[in-house]
Amino acid sequence: MASTAISLSLPTFPSSSSTVKAKPSIFSHPHLFIAKNVPSSSLFSSSTKITKQIRTAFKIKCSSASFSNTLPSALLFDCDGVLVDTEKDGHRVSFNDTFNEKELGVTWGVDLYGELLKIGGGKERMTAYFNKTGWPDKAPKSEEERKAFIASLHKRKTELFMALIENRLLPLRPGVAKLIDQALGEGVKVAVCSTSNEKAVSAVVSCLLGPERAEKIQIFAGDVVPRKKPDPAIYTLAANTLGVEPSSCVVVEDSAIGLAAAKAAGMTCIVTKSGYTADEDFLNADAVFDCIGDPPEERFDLAFCGSLLEKQYVS
Rank of each mutant, 00 (worst) to 15 (best):
S196M: 11
T98R: 01
P211I: 03
V224I: 15
E115W: 14
G109L: 01
S194P: 11
L116V: 02
E145L: 12
T158C: 06
N96W: 00
E215L: 00
G121K: 10
K199S: 08
D181V: 03
V106I: 15
C207A: 08
A183R: 13
G187K: 02
I180G: 01
K141Y: 10
R168C: 04
V192A: 06
V225K: 01
L172I: 06
D97F: 02
L184K: 06
R146W: 04
V192Y: 09
T98Q: 02
K155S: 11
E186Y: 14
P140H: 08
S142N: 12
V176T: 05
L112Y: 14
L169T: 10
P140G: 07
E166W: 09
A163D: 15
G187D: 02
I219W: 04
D97W: 01
T127H: 14
F149S: 03
E166C: 05
F149G: 02
V192T: 11
G175E: 02
I150R: 13
L169V: 07
V110F: 13
E145G: 09
R213W: 07
H154A: 00
R156A: 03
N100Y: 02
F99D: 00
I119M: 07
K147M: 08
G210S: 04
V204S: 03
S152E: 15
G134L: 12
S194F: 10
N197V: 06
E215P: 02
S152V: 09
P140Y: 09
I217H: 07
E198F: 11
D223T: 07
E143S: 14
L104S: 01
K157Y: 08
K141W: 09
C207M: 07
Y113P: 01
L112F: 14
E198C: 04
A148G: 10
G121I: 10
G122N: 14
E101H: 12
D223A: 04
R146V: 05
K216T: 06
R173M: 05
Q182I: 03
D111Q: 12
R125L: 14
L179D: 00
D97Q: 10
L112I: 10
T195Q: 09
V93G: 00
L104H: 04
R168Y: 01
N167F: 10
E143P: 00
R156I: 04
G210K: 01
Y113A: 01
I165D: 01
N96T: 00
E103H: 13
T158P: 11
